[in-house]
Amino acid sequence: MADAPIVLLNGFYHGSWAWSEVITELAARGRAAVAVDLAAHGLHAVAPESATRRPFDAGAFATEPSPVFGIGLDAAADLLIGRLKAIGGGRRLPAVAHSMGGAVLTRAAEREPGLFAHLYYLAAYMPASDTPCLVYPSLPEGQSNRFMTLLVGDPESTGALRIDPGNPDPEVQKAIREAFYGDVEEPKAAAAIAMLSCDAPVAMVVESTTLTGSGWGSVPRTYIRCTQDRTIPAELQTLFVSQADAAFPGNRTSVFDLTTSHSAFLSAPDQVADVLTDSPKG
């Protein structure tokens, strides 16, 4: 039987477009891959009206409730599970998540472990049982992140982790580039920033998943640690692995290191493809 296609899930603010270069590299290695949009992102993204209203009102943008505020982990997992069933046709599939896509991958694998051949976390949240992702940036391992300073407005009021990728201020553009694309060549980073959505549902970071040995803990997993990451610091990525291995010592995490920033899918797509094709499939 031919290798099952690899399913790729983006993180916050990105879409399936983020994986285009990895898909090309995988194809060159004889592996098929399909990128799917995270709920409320890509083709499912909905921006607040103030984001495109002209003249731009910064105050309105900082306070307008988000149209995606109520989309949580179950809704996002529903969408991913549906895509996996359609793509796999009953086969177990390897799945890769980036950044906050990891929390959604975790919820989906806990609910439907039989859909997954292997879980890959690329600089992704891999939260411990009953632990919301929002907890992690305030931990000592996460405090050096440059992501939280990008937020606009009060997430409790807007219902979103809102950023402003359309802000022409060079300092804002520089801050986004340093947080997400530190080692991506500047023209490519600018093109990626232009495609970012502005709202990520706060529900996804305040909800948690109870992990079990028969659910998520039963699926083989690999963590791809990006050692120069300024959004999810390497120390925090290491914590995810140690927590998972302590909870499920009979199913330990394989770890691969890449000397890249948060967005290895743009700065080192060949290396990402190498890990996905050379690592254990479970």
Rank of each mutant, 00 (worst) to 15 (best):
L105R: 00
A97M: 09
G88C: 09
G90F: 14
A76S: 14
Y121S: 02
A117D: 15
N145C: 09
L122Q: 09
G101E: 03
P127C: 05
A124D: 03
E141Y: 08
A128R: 00
S144D: 12
V135P: 10
E141D: 13
D78A: 01
G101D: 09
N145S: 12
P137K: 02
F116W: 11
A97R: 06
S129V: 10
L134R: 04
A123L: 11
A103M: 05
A108V: 08
P127N: 09
H118A: 14
Y120F: 14
Y120P: 01
G142I: 00
P127K: 07
T106M: 11
S144E: 13
Y121K: 04
P137E: 04
P113A: 09
D78H: 07
Y120T: 05
A109F: 12
A128F: 12
E110C: 00
L139S: 02
A117L: 15
A117R: 13
E112C: 14
Y125T: 03
A117F: 13
L79D: 04
A97V: 14
P113K: 03
Y120K: 13
L139C: 11
H98W: 08
S99Q: 10
V104P: 12
R107Q: 02
P94S: 09
R92Q: 15
R92F: 14
R107N: 02
G101R: 04
G102L: 11
P94N: 04
V96E: 02
H98P: 12
R111T: 03
L122C: 08
G101P: 13
G82C: 11
A124E: 00
